[in-house]
C-alpha cells in the first residue's frame, strides 16, 4: 500500500477547476516533487492529500486511509504549508511543548536536533522571526514528529540560497536516515533534480507526467526530424509518446518519450537530425510551453 494514492482527483473552486482528474501515487521511501507553474494546482493537490480540503470528486488515501475520515493517520504525517502554520504569539519551544501533548510521536530530542541543524532559536516568538526562520521552525517541528511521510509545500520559498541547500540536504538526510517518504512542491527545477527521485508535472490542473527521474532522463528526448515536406503538427502530436511538437519548415522539433529511432519509423520522416536527452527543466518547459 502506497503512502499516498490519488485517483481521478478533482477540485473546483466555484467555476474554476484547480485540479482535473489527477491520478498519481507516491511510493514508500521516495522523494517525490510536484512541479508546475503558478496556478497549476500544486498547493491544492497537497492540501487534498493531507485532508485539509474535500475533493470535488475522486479519492485520496494515505496508506489506504482517507485522512478526512481517519484523522489518526495524520500521526504519521508531517506537513509544512507554504505559509508556516504557526501561532505567532508562541515561541518555538512553546510550540514544541504543545505538540508533545497532542502528538504521540513528537520527540523533544528530535526537535532539539532539528532546531540545531536548521539553526533556529527556539526561545524567540514566532512573531519575531523572519519568514525564512519561520519556515525553518515549521520544518523543525514537522521533523520532530518523526513522520513516515513529509508533505512540504514550497519548503525553500523565502529562504536564501545557502539555507535552501541546507534545507534540501536536511530533506535528503531525513529520507535516508528515517526511511520517510517525502512529497514536496517546488519552483526551482535545479533543486528538484538534485533532491527528488520522482517527479509529477502538473499543467493546468492535470497530471502530465509521473515518473522516476532516472527514467525520465533515459526516455525523454528532444528529437529533430527532417521531412520531405512541412509535416502536420497535429499528425505528429497524435503519435504515441509525442509530448509536444514545434515545426519549422521541413524540420520538426519533437519532445518524444522513447527511442528516437522508433519515432523516425512512426513519423515517416526522412532522417533524424539530432536527438538530445532532456533534463527536467527542458521536459517541464516543453509541457508548459507546448501545453502538451
Amino acid at each position: 500500500m502506497h503512502p499516498v494514492e490519488c485517483r481521478e482527483l478533482s477540485k473546483r473552486y466555484r467555476e474554476r477547476s484547480a485540479l482535473a482528474g489527477v491520478t498519481m501515487h507516491v511510493p514508500e521511501g521516495s522523494i517525490t516533487a510536484v512541479v508546475g507553474e503558478n496556478g497549476a494546482g500544486k498547493t491544492t493537490l497537497l492540501r487534498l492529500v493531507v485532508g485539509l480540503m474535500r475533493p470535488t470528486s475522486g479519492t485520496v488515501s494515505l496508506w489506504g486511509m482517507d485522512p478526512r475520515v481517519k484523522p489518526e493517520v495524520r500521526e504519521r504525517l508531517g506537513y509544512v504549508p507554504e505559509r508556516p502554520a504557526l501561532d505567532r504569539r508562541f515561541t518555538g519551544d512553546d510550540l514544541a511543548r504543545l505538540s508533545l501533548r497532542v502528538r504521540r510521536r513528537f520527540s523533544l530530542a528530535a526537535y532539539a536536533r532539528a532546531m540545531d541543524e536548521l539553526d533556529v532559536d527556539g526561545s524567540r516568538k514566532v512573531d519575531e522571526l523572519s519568514k525564512g526562520m519561520q519556515t525553518r521552525l515549521a520544518l523543525a517541528l514537522a521533523l520532530a514528529q518523526e513522520p513516515d511521510l513529509m508533505v512540504l509545500d514550497e519548503p525553500t520559498e523565502g529562504l536564501d540560497p545557502l539555507v535552501r541547500r541546507r534545507v534540501l540536504a536536511e530533506l535528503i538526510g531525513l529520507a535516508a536516515g528515517f526511511g520517510a517518504t517525502v512529497l514536496f512542491t517546488a519552483h526551482v527545477l535545479g533543486e528538484v533534480e538534485r533532491v527528488a527521485d520522482r517527479v509529477i508535472v502538473l499543467v493546468g490542473g492535470r497530471c502530465r507526467l509521473e515518473a522516476p527521474l532516472h527514467e525520465l532522463r533515459a526516455s525523454e528526448h528532444m528529437v529533430r526530424l527532417r521531412f520531405d515536406a512541412a509535416p502536420s503538427p497535429a499528425t505528429l502530436r497524435a503519435l504515441a509518446g509525442v509530448r509536444s511538437v514545434h515545426v519549422d519548415g521541413d524540420v520538426a522539433h519533437v519532445h518524444y518519450s522513447g527511442p528516437p529511432e522508433l519515432l523516425l519509423a512512426m513519423s515517416g520522416a526522412r532522417e533524424v537530425l539530432g536527438a538530445e536527452a532532456m533534463d527536467l527543466e527542458s521536459v517541464y518547459l516543453s509541457f508548459v510551453e507546448g501545453r502538451a
Partner: peptide
C-alpha cells in the same frame, strides 16, 4: 485570527477529528 493568520492549519493537522 487563527484562520486569517494560518495557524488554524496546525490545529487541523492534529491527528484528531474536526
Amino acid at each position: 485570527g487563527e484562520a486569517t493568520g494560518g495557524s488554524i492549519t496546525w490545529l487541523l493537522m492534529l491527528p484528531r477529528p474536526r
